[in-house]
Amino acid sequence: MAWALGANSNSPPFAPAIGANAISTMRAAFLIGIFAAAGALTQGGAISETVGADLIGGVTITPLAASTGLLVAASFMIFGVYSGYPVPAAFATTGALVGVGLSLGGDPAFGTYQRIGTFWLLVPPMSGGLAYVTATLLRREEVPETVGVPLLAAVVGAILANIRLGVIPHPERAQGSLAEAASFAVGRPLVAGVDVVAILATVVVAAVGFRYIRAKTQVSAEQGIRTFLLILGSVVAFSSGGSQVGLATGPLENLYSVELGLPSIILLGIGALGILAGAWMGAPRLLQATSREYAQLGARRSIAALVPGFIIAQVAIALGIPISFNNIIISGVIGGGLAAGSAGVSRRKIGVTLAFWVITLVMSIAIGFGLYRLLSTVLGIQ
Rank of each mutant, 00 (worst) to 15 (best):
L178H: 15
L178M: 15
L178G: 12
A181C: 13
A182V: 14
F184D: 08
A185P: 11
R188V: 12
P189Y: 06
P189I: 04
A192F: 15
V194M: 06
V194K: 08
D195I: 09
L200Q: 07
A201M: 15
T202K: 09
V203G: 13
V205L: 10
V208N: 03
G209Y: 08
A215C: 02
A215T: 07
A215Q: 04
A215S: 08
A215D: 06
A215Y: 07
Q218W: 12
Q218G: 09
S220N: 14
A221S: 13
A221Q: 12
Q223C: 14
I225A: 12
I225T: 15
R226M: 09
T227Q: 07
L229N: 03
L229E: 04
L230R: 10
I231M: 08
I231D: 03
I231K: 06
S234W: 05
V235N: 01
V235L: 02
S239N: 05
S240V: 11
G241C: 05
G241W: 03
G242T: 10
S243K: 02
G246V: 07
G246W: 04
A248N: 02
A248W: 00
A248I: 02
T249W: 01
P251T: 06
E253G: 01
N254V: 02
L255P: 08
Y256F: 14
V258C: 08
E259C: 12
I265D: 13
I266V: 13
I266Y: 15
L267S: 07
L267R: 07
L268D: 03
G269Q: 12
G269D: 13
G269F: 12
G271C: 06
G271F: 02
A272T: 00
A272P: 00
G274T: 01
I275W: 00
L276E: 00
L276I: 00
A277W: 01
